[in-house]
Structure formats: C-alpha cells, structure tokens
C-alpha cells in the first residue's frame, strides 16, 4: 500500500537534495544576473551613441537573443561550442554564459529606453557646464533614468529565475532534475510522488518570484504617482 504522498519530500535526504538543486539554479542565476547587469548597462549606454555601425551590431545582438527561444540558445551553446570551437565547458558554465548574454541583451534595451527618456535640456545643460561625455552619462543620464529602469530590471530578474527551470534540458542537476530522480526512485512506494514533488517545486518558484513581482508593481505605481504629481 502506498504511503501518504507528502512524506516523499522528507524521506531520507530528499529535502536536502531538492534544496541543493535549488542552490545550483540560484548560483547560475545570480552570476548571470550580475555579469549581465554590468554588460547590459555598458551596451545600453553604447546604444545611445550616434554611431550607426555600433548601433546596428548591438541591435542585431539584441534581436538574436530576443527572437531565438532560450531553450534553443542553451542547445546552441551546449552543442556548438565543444564541437565546432573546441571549447569544453561544463553544462553549468554554458548555462551561466547563455543567461548572462541573454540578460545583457534585454538589459541593454531597458537602459537605452531609460536614457533616451531623459529630457534633452538635461543633456544641453550638462554640456553647457562643461561635462565630458563620460561625466554626462555618469552624473546626469544614468542617475535620472535609473528609477525608470528598476521595475523592468526586477521583472527581468524574475524571468531569469523562471528560466532556470530549463537547466534540466542540458542535464544540469537543478531542482527539477533532482525532483525527477526522487520521483523515479520512490515511484513504487508513493503513488502521488509527482503531485507532491512537482507541487513543491511549483510553490518554491512562486515563493521566489512573487515578492519580486509585488516589488516591481509597487515601484511602478510609485513612479506613476510621481509622474502625475
């Protein structure tokens, strides 16, 4: 006779293993977000310069990462790097690289949108008091647009967290992969194994993403009030 399903989560080292899987997903997401944030801000600022070639290249980079589904991006890097360029990276590194490049691409669009929304008077005034281009970005454009960028960036972070669910496809031992193993190993004794394990992971993702979406919405509303006031 089958055991009560929820115990599958607590049997043996199952819970520790699940949380260990979550840690791997979190680590990949965290590194990718930090690298992608820095790269994205630089690329976004570059996209506001009046250099047509540079803008075209960066636009192409953005569109490439935006048009191709993330699953396909993962496979492209996972299979093509070792086979055609002789670069051997572990699955975790490949995933970090793909997520970082993807985050940077989307971030560059957020940063560009923020910067071009700063009123041109600000730029003119900055030039009038003799700021050079770098100072203009650092003291005038970025500080004024950062408020606008934050909600979209939080949403992007939450998208990256949700996308870590795809890690299983390139055999990273993430939380879902561990969950599958637990279900397979205990399937004989627990009829409702999938229900409890996948339900648990479902809630885990919800707990991670829901506060972020509340926070983003709160900031957006505040922004709206400020703009109308």
């Amino acid at each position: 006779m089958a055991h009560s399903g929820i115990n599958i989560l607590f049997e043996g080292r199952n819970m520790v293993r699940l949380l260990g899987g979550l840690w791997i997903s979190a680590k990949i997401a965290a590194i990718a977000i930090v690298v992608g944030l820095v790269l994205g801000i630089v690329l976004g600022a570059l996209r506001t310069l009046h250099n047509p070639l540079l803008r075209a290249i960066l636009r192409l980079y953005l569109e490439f990462f935006r048009v191709i589904p993330t699953v396909v991006l993962l496979f492209l890097f996972y299979y093509i790097l070792p086979q055609n360029f002789n670069i051997n990276m572990g699955a975790e590194s490949v995933a970090t690289l793909v997520f970082a490049l993807w985050f940077a691409a989307e971030m560059s669009d957020i940063v560009r949108g923020g910067i071009i929304s700063v009123s041109p008077h600000q730029v003119d005034s900055g030039k009038a008091i003799g700021l050079n281009r770098l100072q203009l970005y650092y003291y005038v454009l970025l500080p004024q647009s950062i408020q606008l960028m934050i909600p979209a960036t939080i949403n992007l972070v939450s998208r990256v967290i949700k996308t870590t669910s795809l890690l299983l496809l390139i055999s990273v031992m993430d939380v879902i992969n561990v969950g599958q193993q637990i279900i397979e190993a205990n399937g004989q004794r627990y009829e409702n194994g999938s229900f409890w394990v996948y339900g648990f992971i479902f809630i885990l993702y919800f707990i991670l993403c829901y506060p972020l979406s509340l926070w983003a919405r709160h900031l957006e509303r505040k922004e709206l009030v400020n703009a109308n006031g």
């Binding site: 879902i176 279900i183 339900g199 919800f206 829901y210």
Partner: peptide, 23 residues
C-alpha cells in the same frame, strides 16, 4: 494571475502532465 505569472511553464507542464493523472 499571480500563480501563472510567477511560475515557469516547464513546471506547470510537469504538473499538468504528470501530477494531474495521479489525482
């Protein structure tokens, strides 16, 4: 809306395809 937006499609699919038959 909150459940749908704050969880990944992959785990939603696993739940629908593997967990629903169990109940």
């Amino acid at each position: 809306v909150e459940l749908s937006r704050n969880t990944p499609l992959l785990i939603q699919l696993f739940f629908i395809y593997y967990a629903f038959p169990e109940i």
